[in-house]
Amino acid sequence: MSETDNPGGKPRATGDVTIELRGVHKWYGQFHVLKDINLAVNRGERIVICGPSGSGKSTMIRCINRLEEHQQGQIIVDGTELTDDVKHIDQVRKEVGMVFQHFNLFPHLTVLENCCLSPIWVRKLPRKEAEAAAMRYLEKVKIPEQAKKYPGQLSGGQQQRVAIARSLCMNPHVMLFDEPTSALDPEMIKEVLDTMIELAESGMTMLCVTHEMGFAKTVANRVIFMDAGEIIEENEPHEFFNNPQSDRTQLFLSQILQH
């Protein structure tokens, strides 16, 4: 597989489940963060997860690549169940890319080195191949000219696009986005969202925790609303925004769409 996406740019055939969460519970000490989460994500699906802060949405997607541990239930990614087994975790992390709110680029490495690090050390690609692939992805996110710079020399929007390219360099099947635009200045949000939209159009399976409702409307197949550790509502975007079922969802939507 040369690219993560299929060459035609059309979504992959949907239908086969790539991520499955079954009855997942998680506690931080006494605090019950995730309560009986059930979710199946099909290949090529774009899911937007929203909800008030502290509702467990970040925690949920962080469980999918085991940055957080769940205590009950099952999480299965591409047929691999996440357990304490390090091999399983490594397997899943190879398939799942993640983009963070604060970019988390490695400040001591150049943009290119940031992108090549994992392909070289985890996938054992020769340096030349890794660099060529990295340049392709940097072109895709439209900043190939910054390859030799250090992250500290880039703007927030550029850094986040590098972070997206860095994840793509591992050829993931699934991309997780944890509030990718929340730390950005308004004028930089668009450039990151454009990149994400392009990625969505190429058929990538995406789970995005975001409050960008415009993004949800244009890109998502499904919107999930969480509150207090539970999935309250899930629906396709048109229905979700125009005809929310639960009063909690209605309240949330009225609050964020007012301004």
Binding site: L67, R93, G97, F100, V122
Partner: peptide, 18 residues
């Protein structure tokens, strides 16, 4: 070193020593 650096390294599949 901020926690995010550890998390980014983990998310990229790097082992502890790497």
């Amino acid at each position: 070193i901020p926690k995010g650096q550890y998390e980014a390294a983990e998310a990229l599949g790097l082992s502890y020593w790497k």
